[in-house]
Design a protein around this nucleic acid. Structure first.
Lengths: 247, 247
DNA sequence: AACCAACTGAGTACGTTGTACGCAAGTGGA
DNA sequence: TCCACTTGCGTACAACGTACTCAGTTGGTT
């Protein structure tokens, strides 16, 4: 861990000389505090002043460790990859499926993640380890490096997009702060009127049937994921209709 | 168009009475100016003062039209849906494929879109028309409303996730402001050293083979999209070869 | 024709944000 | 011992979203 800390420093700050007082904090500690803060109070609560107070130090002290607030967010994203285990899998489909669910679980634990701009541009120690792990899942099944990359990116794109849609609308609804009844009163009548114009017969059906029990978000995610994996499977070289694995 | 303007007002502000001076602007005009501003200078350039100046009015005058800056962004997102045509398609696959490409094209024209938090929570006039259109694509092929919704959401999740990944890393690289050579010097050597540890043989292969020509982003997007559509197709009623469930 | 309620545009001001700058104090190699 | 170089951190500033306020404009009512 302290070995990886050294790598982090390269990204966030130039390496320290041996002169001068010992730093009172570590990048990891700072990031961990920031993650805890955002987990409980959301990304908007992450302020340099607030984070410093949480750490019991002065605001500007943080800039001895990072160059900007964005650096902190990069470190936070990398830190959350630490909690994703990396077991071996019997085949690529099981592996990619498991991975997609891990991505979703992480996003549910840390909902602020879907709000950060380019979460995968910065590759910290955990990120590197994670990406290598992804490639290992699709390695040895007869794919070239480009095909492996495409399969990984495809599953990642779906998982990110789906979980983002799942979380974002919920957060927006919460931010609006409206109780459900208030929302219905403000917009529901307007919507109902729009539906009654007859211009939107299909959306009308959606609204009517939306009142009966639906799939859980979890099941919806799983459904889409299986379709994506199906798609990869039909395209994979050596694929046989019954579940035969080429090795 | 002025009919739709009336709907917009319902969302953004209570309806106007006939008393008092005529408003100098329209919601659509404000949103259009804001879109032009963000297209050319990015989402960060969108400030209330800047937008007001662009319109040739006072900053606080904008608040006669919207309740907050977020309202403006909602209007902008809806406005960009206006430029997506809605032709008929011979079959659902052609339709969903075309739609995914439209989503990508829109994001390339308006890169700031992938930065807004929950683009589909607010359903403006164009958004409603667009969603109804999506349902029309998958209507009449024997799907229940839930299945239709799932098919649409799946393609949307992939398209959003893929285009977000495609754009976000590019924007981050641009923001870093580093020329390619500088980036290589700052991080490339660090990366090379990491690769030389032998811990990441697959990423090493990626880096080595990444120097030769790759697929264009367009082709990569198309590849993933076809896999997603394949996945839907294998699941559609009337097509039942293998039913592999892993969980 | 006169009135005034309801609107308009817009200036001023406030709280909060990220962070540049500077300084006193601490520390290890010379 | 010295001092180059670190540390934590207080102060300060520009820019942000927006609440408050007020003069000016308009059209329905009298």
């Amino acid at each position: 861990m302290s070995d990886e800390q050294a790598k982090l420093i390269i990204w966030a700050r130039p390496p320290r000389s041996s002169r001068g007082p010992k730093p009172a904090f570590t990048l990891e500690g700072i990031a961990r505090t920031a993650v805890a803060l955002c987990d409980s109070e959301g990304l908007d609560a992450l302020t340099m002043r607030r984070l410093a107070a949480e750490l019991g130090t002065g605001t500007m002290s943080l800039y001895r460790y990072v160059r900007s607030k964005d650096d902190i967010i990069d470190l936070m994203v990398d830190l959350t990859l630490e909690e994703i285990e990396r077991p071996e899998h019997p085949d690529w489909r099981t592996g990619l499926c498991w991975n997609a669910h891990q991505i979703r679980a992480r996003a549910l634990r840390h909902p602020w993640i879907v709000q950060v701009d380019a979460p995968y541009f910065f590759l910290g120690p955990n990120g590197i380890e994670f990406v290598e792990y992804l490639y290992r899942i699709v390695d040895g099944i007869g794919l070239g490096i480009d095909e492996m990359m495409r399969a990984i990116n495809l599953v990642a794109a779906y998982a990110e997009g789906a979980v983002r849609a799942e979380l974002a609308s919920g957060r927006r609804a919460a931010e609006a702060g409206v109780t459900e009844e208030e929302w219905i009163r403000a917009h529901g009548t307007h919507f109902r009127a729009l539906m009654d114009t007859g211009r939107y017969p299909l959306m009308r059906r959606v609204m009517l049937e939306a009142e009966q029990p639906h799939m859980t978000p979890e099941e919806n995610f799983e459904y889409g994921l299986q379709r994506v994996l199906d798609g990869i499977e039909t395209w994979l070289p050596g694929f046989r209709p019954p579940k035969t694995e080429t090795s």
